[in-house]
């Protein structure tokens, strides 16, 4: 194996990590806004599904315009992403209404939405594409390639890093993350939102409308969750099949591991995405050389057989999640009034 290959593999791992960290980060940040306003948002999975569904449908509708050159491909992506966000927001209104207006149990309300979303997605997919057509294909123009920017493609470290897995949603995430941090810690809105999740009576006693702040928290989580759903679908493969593979729940774990704080959530998302990618690459890497062999050959040493390790590696991010949550849960501190009216 040549060194060039190793370089490209590393670039590939980094870029894949980023592209998988993006949905985790967006969705976990969304969860953070909701929970710090005091509403447990277990419906993130459902919100992601709705966002992914509507984003993919929008891309499908825009496809003729983009392929015929009437609409720029990345402008189309921007429209699809925002549409995904708005639809996620609309879906999250259901959670807000149930838990804020009706004071329903937030966990049960969220679970109901998680059951509703995939069913709704399948029905809509069939309505749009015809019965039995369960996959909405993602058009190839969704990805930013050298061609999008007018370069010639090359097979080297930098090109792999930048163009193997590059989507508009990645850039949007950088901006949204920065905006979220500022909103949360530098503005009046953020201070008030956080107070509602900690001590709503205190907030109310100084004239803050807890009702409105909690709606705002849930709606923001719907918006970020919707975009996150689309970002996941883009990262995961070539089409949307009414599922986001448990990423909404993984994002919840990321949020908890990140202690409901944006920078820690960023770190946690990258961490989990890295494990996800390593899981996917493990078998390939093992064949690359002694270094990787030592790193990724250990399942064999503890008695996991060759055939079984293909099942072992994809489990890795989830196992690590469980272990880390057990280890860190003592230190983590949820918003105090979360889940309470």
């Amino acid at each position: 194996m040549s060194t060039l290959n190793v370089g490209i593999v590393i670039a590939d791992i980094i870029s894949s990590t980023i592209v998988f960290a993006v949905p985790l980060l967006l969705v976990a940040m969304g969860g953070m806004f909701s929970e710090r306003s005091g509403i447990i948002n277990i419906a993130l999975e459902g919100i992601m599904i709705i966002g992914a569904l509507m984003g993919c449908l929008m891309m499908r509708w825009l496809d003729p315009a983009v392929t015929s050159g009437q609409l720029g491909s990345q402008l189309g992506m921007l429209i699809a992403s925002l549409f995904a966000g708005v639809c996620g927001m609309a879906f999250s209104v259901l959670l807000a209404f149930a838990s804020i207006n009706l004071k329903a149990d937030q966990t049960i309300g969220g679970t109901a939405l998680n059951m509703l979303a995939p069913a709704l997605a399948i029905v809509l997919t069939w309505v749009v594409q015809g019965q039995g057509q369960t996959t909405i294909l993602i058009p190839t123009w969704s990805r930013i390639t050298q061609a999008t920017l007018g370069f010639a493609a090359k097979e080297n470290f930098l090109h792999t890093l930048l163009f193997k897995n590059m989507y508009l949603t990645t850039f949007m995430t950088v901006i949204l993350f920065a905006a979220a941090v500022i909103l949360m810690y530098k503005t009046k809105f953020g201070l008030r939102l956080r107070s509602c999740g900690e001590h709503p009576q205190a907030a109310a006693s100084v004239g803050i409308n807890v009702f409105k702040m909690r709606y705002a928290g849930v709606l923001i989580s719907g918006f970020l969750g919707g975009i996150g759903g689309l970002a996941f679908t883009l990262a995961a493969g070539s089409g949307f099949q009414s599922s986001v593979a448990g990423y909404g729940f993984l994002a919840l774990a990321v949020m908890i591991f990140g202690n409901w704080k944006p920078w820690s959530i960023l770190g946690a998302s990258l961490f989990f995405a890295l494990f996800k990618v390593i899981g996917a690459y493990a078998t390939t890497l093992q064949n690359l050389g002694p270094f990787f062999n030592v790193l990724f050959g250990w399942p064999a040493k503890i008695g996991i057989k060759e055939g079984q390790s293909t099942y072992f590696w994809p489990m890795l991010p989830y196992i690590v999640t469980m272990i880390l949550l057990v280890l860190t849960s003592k230190k983590s501190r949820a918003p105090k009034a979360e889940g309470r009216a």
Binding site: E198, H199, A203, V206
Partner: peptide, 19 residues
């Protein structure tokens, strides 16, 4: 009516924030 994880300053200005 104080938010425990906030600083003294944040608690004082909460609801009447100079901005």
């Amino acid at each position: 009516k104080l938010v425990e994880i906030f600083t003294v300053l944040d608690n004082i200005i909460l609801g009447a924030e100079p901005n």
